[in-house]
Amino acid sequence: MPASALVHTVLHKDAYPAATRAADWRLHAACAGLPDETVFAHRPKPALPALRACAICPVRRRCLETVAPAESWFDGVSGGRLWRNGKEVRIPTDLTPEPDLAVDYPDHP
């Protein structure tokens, strides 16, 4: 599945009926609405906005459990870590993300 289709399926709020939206953890993800190239980045620098979002995300653990990067050979950001082919990518210390609290993220429950 192309990344854009996955993002639409995972993050597009209008794709689900109201009853489903209330219970769907993906709609509460801090990365909802970030561009594909950020969420599915292969390198640390382009992934920084998604990693910053993870730092304040209320569904971080659920994301990591559901995506299961090591088992799915995932490429991108999940659970506050960057993955390439299911292996965690080391983030250089000069790029270590800190949460950008000035960014206006969607409301979380």
Rank of each mutant, 00 (worst) to 15 (best):
A18G: 03
D14M: 06
A55V: 08
L11M: 10
F40Y: 12
K13M: 03
A22H: 11
C31Y: 00
R26A: 05
M1R: 03
A15G: 03
T93K: 15
S78Y: 00
P2H: 06
L95V: 07
P49K: 08
A70H: 06
E88Q: 11
A19C: 04
T96L: 15
R90E: 14
V39S: 00
D36N: 13
E98I: 08
N85R: 15
P58Q: 13
Y105H: 15
R90K: 10
I91Y: 03
K87A: 13
H28Y: 12
T66Y: 06
P97H: 12
N85W: 04
I91S: 06
A5L: 13
L64P: 01
E65C: 03
A30Q: 10
F74R: 02
E71T: 01
L48D: 01
P109F: 05
G33K: 00
A23L: 13
V89R: 03
L6Q: 10
K45V: 02
P106H: 14
R26V: 00
C31V: 00
A5W: 09
A102F: 04
H28V: 09
P97Y: 12
A32R: 07
A18W: 13
A18R: 14
F74K: 10
K13G: 05
A29Y: 02
L48H: 03
P2Q: 08
T9F: 13
A47Y: 03
A29V: 06
D36I: 08
R60S: 04
C57I: 07
E37I: 00
Y16W: 13
C63N: 02
D104V: 12
C31G: 09
V10S: 13
V89E: 02
D104R: 10
A47R: 00
V77W: 03
V103G: 05
G86P: 06
L82N: 13
V10W: 07
S78A: 15
C54M: 06
G33T: 12
M1L: 11
D107M: 05
A30L: 03
E88C: 05
P106E: 08
C63R: 05
R81L: 12
F40R: 11
T96R: 15
T96P: 00
I56C: 11
H108S: 07
A32W: 03
E98F: 06
K45W: 01
S72G: 01
L34D: 06
G76N: 09
R84H: 15
A15S: 07
H42A: 15
T66P: 01
W25D: 01
S4W: 08
A41E: 12
R43K: 14
L64G: 02
H42F: 10
A30C: 04
L48K: 05
A18I: 06
R84V: 04
D14L: 14
L11T: 07
L95R: 15
D104M: 01
L51Y: 05
V77M: 00
A47C: 07
V39L: 15
A18P: 02
D100M: 08
V59G: 02
V103K: 08
A70V: 07
D107L: 13
A22V: 13
T9R: 10
H8M: 02
D75C: 05
P97R: 02
N85A: 14
A50V: 11
R81V: 02
C54D: 09
T9C: 10
H8S: 10
